[in-house]
Design a protein around this nucleic acid. Structure first.
Lengths: 353, 353
DNA sequence: CTGTTAGCGCCTTCAA
DNA sequence: TTGAAGGCGCTAACAG
């Protein structure tokens, strides 16, 4: 009975406000015959509401299928119960981290909001600052920044950097050992007899890319092989930006017998370019990547690569953030996980001439 | 000069409102010496501001690193430029879709917000209704629902269902052919000589699970093999819920020689359980999964499975949503993509006794 | 061209 | 125990 009346009232009201079909706290209050603030108290389990009233309000909330608007609520209250994962885009690397982040958040009582924002108008600020500014203080209680390129965003919510591309930072940080990983990669190629080893580097402005190039140089020098600067091209971490430099590396008479790429996506692109040029991998050319994203093993030429423990890194980052949220003080914690060599089918001993 | 003063003012103001360090539109207005509404007009490129003023305001915005709060803005304006991807959790399946969704959104001008919400207090409503209610109308202009279990959420923003688990729906829908895929899987096992083929089914309340079981039954019947009900256990799509039923299937004297699992995660779990019981896969037991998530090929026993074109499905869903946002009318569009058999190393001819 | 005013949905004092 | 009033940051009328 009361049911029918409520629903009719709801319908009529909806028609008056045609742009929204969602019930608001006002609808609940009206339908329950109480004030808005009483409903708010019930929702947030505040004191000062009789159990009888509270029960009635809860029933109306259920009937109307009411859920508080995250946007509106966050405007007023300090806490939203939502944690942000800020990424530049949803590609294999960030989504792999996302699984670990999600797993670690499970059971914490927090919900996860992964945000892939555009770059702001001012390129000095990276996408992460823009996203942080848009979400922090309002929508999210804390954030994990995935591969941020700035080191010290000064925001009031706890923030953890995951695989930061900038140098040292005051944020708690989780990353993996790029330097040793790169040495591992090049040493493996050396062990296969390669001597002309090229590098498809990352972005020179990013710390992780610098470390991978440093590892490349160091391994060569340790083997007594002089570094040939013409054998280093900038691939920029992205397939599209890697095409031309990969071709430059491979389309020359004294081409290298092996390429170490700064990440898997550009390594895969390198193999594609090699194939276009009529080169077989690994018979004519060995290629090693970095990251071990799922695509590396799924590619038609399964990629030999340096594995970052992405899932673990995600877990650790979220656990760190949760600890920060509990009030722990660990501002200077920088955790670097070990990288490992994963041998697949994109590498082979150097072809004999 | 003005700079220093501004910064000092900013600091003083910040101290008055210590919970927020982010600049607000009020800070910008104050610092630029104009009204809040003028700043708003500049931000939203509305008419009625002199270029001189606009330029000045833009400079102040840049100096302060101001970005409008997504939460506050969405409360007032119809459009936020953000699209939602609503998932139950970030696991291999949804993150794979996310890559396609993200790729298709690129260049559209929209930003992406992937939200993994908890289940609400009322279990009758799924997580997707709760998330929709929290975000729609305010934070997002449109949404893709990933594996929703309800068929007709009635919200005012355009919504596309991706791999819906409920039956037919009035929403535009993208999914793949579960029935044929299951037949493919079982027919392949039959071709290997298997006759005692078990099924680790999904959730009986979900349409996709029902279709996979129907395909299993149909393939057996077509081969003239009676369906043995004791060979069908409910695995529930999740590794944790699949452990016991997998064990029940394998820990019996007349155990099956092959298992078809309703998805990859439970197929992998089945292999793990088999190994614990001392069974080798595929020598003693063949296992086929469904989905072809990255984990399937990366598992130590690479999984034979039915591939859903997840990336493509993501792309299509986003393209559909974007078209809806442009005002296209395609409410009754249901797109079902073909599934394919991917043979890896978890299947072998039936062992001779 | 600019500023004032009135809310969006919600939470939080503060009176009643 | 309840409700009225104010305001979070922002946009959209409407005045000036």
């Amino acid at each position: 009975m009361g049911n029918v009346i409520d629903i009719v009232a709801q319908r009529a009201y909806t028609q008056l406000v045609p742009t929204r079909v969602n019930a608001t706290i006002v609808d609940v209050a009206r339908s329950a015959g109480v004030s808005v603030s009483t409903v708010s108290k019930v929702i947030n389990a505040r004191y000062g509401v009789s159990e009888r009233t509270a029960e009635h309000v809860r029933r109306v909330i259920a009937e109307l299928g009411y859920e508080s608007s995250l946007g509106a609520r966050s405007l007023r209250s300090q806490r939203t119960g939502v944690l942000g994962v800020l990424v530049a885009e949803f590609e294999p690397f960030s989504t792999e981290l996302l699984k670990g982040l999600g797993q670690a958040a499970e059971g914490s009582g927090y919900e996860l909001l992964a945000y892939s924002g555009r770059i702001g108008p001012d390129p000095r600020y990276g996408w992460e600052l823009r996203s942080l500014a848009r979400l922090s203080g309002t929508l999210i209680d804390g954030a994990v920044l995935v591969t941020p390129t700035v080191s010290d965003p000064d925001y009031r919510i706890p923030v953890v950097a995951l695989d930061p591309h900038a140098g040292s930072s005051s944020m708690p940080t989780i990353d993996s050992d790029s330097l040793t990983g790169a040495e591992l990669a090049v040493n493996y190629l050396l062990s296969l007899g390669h001597r002309r080893i090229a590098m498809l580097a990352g972005r020179p402005d990013l710390n992780s890319a610098q470390l991978r190039e440093a590892g490349y140089r160091r391994a060569l020098q340790a083997a007594g092989i002089p570094v040939d600067p013409t054998l280093i091209e900038i691939g920029g971490f992205r397939p599209d930006s890697a095409t031309a430099p990969a071709r430059a590396l491979l389309d020359r008479p004294d081409r290298p017998t092996a390429v170490f790429a700064a990440n898997d996506l550009t390594a895969i692109r390198t193999i594609e370019v090699a194939n276009e040029l009529g080169l077989r991998v690994p018979e004519d050319l060995s290629v090693v990547g970095f990251d071990d994203v799922p695509d590396a093993s799924q590619f038609r030429t399964p990629l030999t690569t340096i594995a970052q423990p992405l899932y673990q890194m995600g877990r650790l980052a979220m656990e760190t953030l949760l600890r920060l949220l509990e009030g722990a003080e660990l501002e200077e914690s920088h955790l670097t996980l070990a990288t490992t060599l994963v041998v697949r089918e994109s590498t082979a001993p150097v072809p004999s001439r």
